[in-house]
Write a protein that binds this DNA or RNA. Sequence first.
DNA 1: ACCTAAGTGGATATGAAGTATCCGCTTATG
DNA 2: CATAAGCGGATACTTCATATCCACTTAGGT
Lengths: 198, 198
Amino acid sequence: MSEKTPALRRDAEHNRQRTLAAAQEVFAARGLQATLNDVAHHARLGVGTVYRRFPNKEALAEAVYAGKLDDIRATAQAALAGRDAYEALRAFLEHALEQAATDRGLRELIRQGTGDSEQIARARQGIVESCGHLIARAQEQGTMRDDITVDDIAPIVAMIDSVMDLPSTGAARPWRRYLALILDGLRTSAAHPGPRSS
Amino acid sequence: MSEKTPALRRDAEHNRQRTLAAAQEVFAARGLQATLNDVAHHARLGVGTVYRRFPNKEALAEAVYAGKLDDIRATAQAALAGRDAYEALRAFLEHALEQAATDRGLRELIRQGTGDSEQIARARQGIVESCGHLIARAQEQGTMRDDITVDDIAPIVAMIDSVMDLPSTGAARPWRRYLALILDGLRTSAAHPGPRSS
DNA sequence: ACCTAAGTGGATATGAAGTATCCGCTTATG
DNA sequence: CATAAGCGGATACTTCATATCCACTTAGGT
């Protein structure tokens, strides 16, 4: 490790944590377009203090989300161990989207396919890879339509995301309903219920 | 009609049309966030000329889209005449989303539930109303799940919209595929294919 | 042809927002 | 207690969109 991290003064380290915590909250609530000034104020720190530790918003966002995203990647990989691949995929998507549901910043990070750091790109790639395996296996198991591919995952996630962004009518979380609807549509049996009724 | 429209000079009227046409194109391609300067330049007119006819971007957008949206409303109303309500709804949604697919500005206008002019609000309301009738009738005809309501329409449209915004991989238009998938899920027969296989 | 009100262009004033720096003051720590 | 590290937050910079202004051009009536 050639990286030198000169060890922060105790108060400085404390403020670093405050900054991260505040960023977490602010990004979750208002999205990545929140300003570092917002974050600093929320942490009850001066702007300068924040800029001293994180050169810019991107760096801060990465510090906040790299771990979270890698957790998701790990969950996806763990899902590979499941017997029923379709169910494993379903459970994984529900878990991942659950995270997204409560964190607008995460949602925006996932959505923008472009310009993410190496660390985040790697997580993204790992997730896609695991989903690919699950899809292939579900198809072998005969539980998923053969015309589904990995490329369907991103659109599906995008679709559910978009429901989350909607000014929801009830206090409910209708995204689960739609996720179920869509995933149901991916099942073999539902592909086309059959010929016209008459 | 107490409205006085003092009749424009011929060249002025011509430029007004150019402005509308340019706005149409620019909004369709780059969305409503395009500036009036963009529009003016695209029409090969000075900015001042555009501002002379349209006090601001909102007014221009309304002039461009009021008609388009009302056409969609009319289509929805016409769909009420169809025998098969489910099929009529499906056809209407496909038609309306076809419009949206080629016009980013229209998409943004549809998405933002807030702050639209009276004219546009009326169209929106009419569309929702017709969809409501179609849903109710399809349920009477036994072709649609009973737990679907009008409130499901907006999320479904939002979901398909989000697919359109995606940096599409192939040159294809994958939104039709997902619309079909979702609508299939609304059918009675697909509600739940049945008990577990074993 | 000529007059004048209507129209035109586009440089530019205005304003809003976000980013990032600077530097006088404070505080941890050996 | 010396001093390097850290802090705060006013503010300089940018960027970008909106909207205006006014010297100049032109349609169209007489």
